[in-house]
């Protein structure tokens, strides 16, 4: 962009690298930051600068954390026999929010996507197998997303885990709360029927 001072241009270019931020949004954000109070800008800059150095990967569950092992892995009140496998750290947050799960986690950091070239070797599958050797795990709950990539990942893990003699379960699939039966696709609806419960 012509006629923009170099420091602003530098910030615009840095912001543009973020997902979902185009040149227009980037310049709007840059000029907004320019007008923010000094202390807020300092806060933002600090938060960004210290992010990388304060975050580590938990060597047990592979989740992002401030400590290694992470708070969940080092909590003795957690059920050590139960491990829930998820795609991303945000999925841990979502399951924690329900308050009904008291086991441990394992974060894969992705899902198998053959056409994008993401294979099992790109996920933290080996770390999961190592945990199975060392820890008293009795059940593995596969909580990958209910889409094709998540399903492929689940099927792959099930194939790998079954011979190890551990119980492998998959999150139930069915109709979303607030959904509409008439718009449900046939796969969801047939699975909801198969998984029906007494009331």
């Amino acid at each position: 962009m012509h006629g923009v001072a170099e420091p602003i241009q530098r910030l615009i270019e840095a912001l543009e690298r973020l997902p979902g931020i185009g040149p227009k949004s980037a310049s709007r954000l840059a000029f907004y930051i320019l007008r923010m109070p000094e202390d807020q800008v300092q806060d933002l800059a600090d938060a960004i600068a210290t992010l990388k150095e304060n975050i580590v990967t938990c060597s047990r569950c592979q989740n992002l954390s401030q400590t290694d092992p992470c708070a969940i892995c080092s909590d003795p009140a957690r059920d050590q026999h139960l491990v829930c496998v998820v795609e991303d750290p945000l999925d841990v947050v979502a399951i924690e929010r329900t308050g009904v799960y008291n086991g441990l986690y394992h974060v894969l950091h992705g899902a198998i996507n053959p056409v994008e070239g993401v294979g099992p070797e790109d996920l933290r599958v080996d770390a999961l197998l190592e945990r199975l050797e060392r820890e008293p795990i009795e059940e593995i709950v596969i909580a990958t997303n209910p889409n094709m990539e998540g399903e492929a990942t689940a099927m792959y893990l099930a194939r790998l885990l079954h011979p190890k003699g551990v119980r492998v379960t998959r999150l139930a699939r069915g109709l979303p709360v607030g959904g509409d039966l008439e718009y449900a696709d046939e796969v969801t609806l047939s699975r909801a029927l198969e998984g029906r419960r007494d009331i």
Partner: peptide, 24 residues
């Protein structure tokens, strides 16, 4: 609106892998 979901391609890892290959 789904016409066919090809459910059996989704529920078997080998078939899923080949279906991805057919598409690619």
């Amino acid at each position: 609106q789904t016409i066919t979901s090809f459910r059996r391609l989704r529920e078997d890892l080998d078939r899923t892998a080949y279906a991805y290959y057919f598409c690619e």
